[in-house]
Design a protein around this nucleic acid. Sequence first.
DNA 1: ATAGCTGCAAATTATTTGCAGTATG
DNA 2: CATACTGCAAATAATTTGCAGCTAT
Lengths: 166, 166
Amino acid sequence: MSKTQTDDLTPLDVPESPEDKFREFLEIRGEKLTDPRRTLVRHIYSSHKHFDADELVRDLHDAGHAISRSTVYRTLRLLVEAGLLRELRLTNRSAYEHDYGYPAHDHLHCTVCNRVVEFRNEEILKLRDEVSRAHGFRATGHRFLITGVCSKCDRSHSPRRRLDLI
Amino acid sequence: MSKTQTDDLTPLDVPESPEDKFREFLEIRGEKLTDPRRTLVRHIYSSHKHFDADELVRDLHDAGHAISRSTVYRTLRLLVEAGLLRELRLTNRSAYEHDYGYPAHDHLHCTVCNRVVEFRNEEILKLRDEVSRAHGFRATGHRFLITGVCSKCDRSHSPRRRLDLI
DNA sequence: ATAGCTGCAAATTATTTGCAGTATG
DNA sequence: CATACTGCAAATAATTTGCAGCTAT
């Protein structure tokens, strides 16, 4: 494995809580940190995982927080603008993940079990900047998604065939 | 510019026409190459550009081909499965581009003018394989999207500010 | 002949919006 | 206390599906 394969995905130490960072963002725009918004940021940052709008609504509901679907959608958009969340478009529904307080990384997507694995590789940034420079672009971000089959699915694929025939 | 910045996006010489390749794919699955499907492949391969379902329906209509929206959607899905088209998810509607007969490449997306530029860089494949190996994945594909601002938009941005204030 | 295909209209899925009442800075 | 926010229901946008008749192998 080369030295560029770092893969350290420990959450970063950040000076402000996500909630504070969101409040600051809203203040600048003359907008308000309301109860539903506070509940949302806290809930989203209470665990580290990928989620979509629907899962979020369900999760909140199960946790006893009745926040309307519209507010969830509206707040997700704000959180992306605020730099707290990153939006992924793996399927036709948008998925989200923490962007603030978490190191830059990219994804491997197993198309069999649908699992998403994060990885970190410094080389990609260099490549991104090299390509951007060559095309007169000022890069502001990137998305690198590798699709394939994870070892588990690769191993269980042929054996599973037998069951599929039942 | 490094030697990995090749950027040769000349269409490839391919042994079979897209139509033949599609027919072969359909035959294997016991499906049929009908008039609407033939019209679609030919139309799609008559120019090289990115397009979405809606644009395609409009283009076809303008060219005098009345193919229903459902058939367009159904056929696009088949063409992706057949390896003729690649699906891109830059926005909430899927965009498509030629995959067969065209060299592997990735994209730069200017978020100001929404232009998409293709580029080729050999290094990415190496990176993709290195990362996949390190995670026990068997890579079957990837998507590398650089978002940023193109030189044209970058130049015209500050001057334009004055007009925005009116 | 016999699957499979088509267009149409209706259904589904994901997301957005208008509005009347409520809460924040 | 002005302005922004919320939930609801209705609207929109993108895509999918059921079905009755049509068509390629």
